[in-house]
Simulated scan of single mutants.
Amino acid sequence: MSQIAPVVVLPGEGHAVEGPAGGPLTFKVRGEQTGGALTALENVIAPGDGPPLHTHGAEDEAWYVIDGALRFRLGDEVADAPAGSFVFVPRGTPHCFQNAGERPARILVLFTPSGMERFFDRFAALPAFDPSAFSTLGAEAGMDVVGPPLRG
């Protein structure tokens, strides 16, 4: 049995890719580093941007808003999440968010267990932006798009 090593990722470190929500996404820890327990990433979200309403079949998801202000749809509810807010969504819950501010927002995103890396890796490898990619690549990773992005 292999031992899982502790991980320290300093500011500015981590593997960065282009994220699906208008800014860079930096992996802080991937599933292969945590024995499949956790994926953690820092994501920059462009003003007005955010993913479509979706669910995860196998992962819980959580966010910590580092900078900026997001608005979340969690099931049938909408909640504001300014800097310093923490949001948790259990698997199977329809959710999406939007950067509600006028400048980029920065968030820490946690998936438990790990597994969503494959979605972000495949999205970043696309040769050009494809609006249907969130849905098609998401389905391959166990994520179902169930509605439009949050607007307004």
Rank of each mutant, 00 (worst) to 15 (best):
L110G: 07
V17D: 09
D130A: 13
G50W: 04
E32L: 06
G36K: 04
A46L: 10
A21D: 11
V8D: 11
G152E: 09
T55K: 09
R103D: 13
F119S: 08
P104G: 12
G115F: 13
L126Q: 14
L38Y: 08
D49T: 04
S135R: 15
F27W: 03
F111K: 03
L126I: 13
A128C: 03
G152W: 03
G12Q: 08
G23D: 10
G101I: 04
E18M: 09
D130L: 08
T26R: 15
S2C: 00
E117P: 12
P149C: 00
P51F: 07
D80V: 00
L70A: 03
V65H: 02
R151T: 08
F27D: 00
L150I: 00
G31R: 05
S114L: 07
G48W: 06
F119K: 09
A105W: 00
L25M: 14
L53D: 12
E42F: 07
E140H: 09
P131T: 07
F111G: 03
S2N: 14
R151W: 00
S2G: 12
G12N: 06
I4F: 01
A58V: 08
P113A: 09
P24F: 03
V109D: 14
A46V: 07
D80E: 15
Q33M: 13
P6L: 06
V7A: 14
V29P: 00
F86A: 15
I107W: 08
S2V: 12
E117A: 08
A5C: 05
V146S: 07
E59F: 01
Q33V: 06
T34D: 01
P82E: 12
F111A: 05
V7N: 10
A5I: 05
R73S: 12
L38G: 08
E77T: 05
A21L: 05
P82N: 13
A40W: 06
H95L: 14
A40F: 10
P131D: 04
R151Q: 14
G36Q: 03
G115W: 12
L150S: 01
A40E: 09
H54E: 13
P24D: 10
G101D: 05
G22I: 05
L41H: 04
E117T: 11
R118G: 08
G36I: 00
L70D: 03
G101S: 12
I4E: 01
F88D: 02
P11I: 14
F120N: 01
G101T: 01
G22T: 02
A37Y: 01
A133T: 12
P51R: 06
F72R: 03
E77S: 05
L41Q: 05
Q3T: 14
L137N: 05
F111E: 02
L150Q: 01
F72L: 09
F120P: 03
G147H: 10
G147T: 12
C96R: 07
I107P: 11
P131H: 06
I45L: 07
F120G: 00
R106I: 09
V145F: 02
A69S: 15
I66V: 15
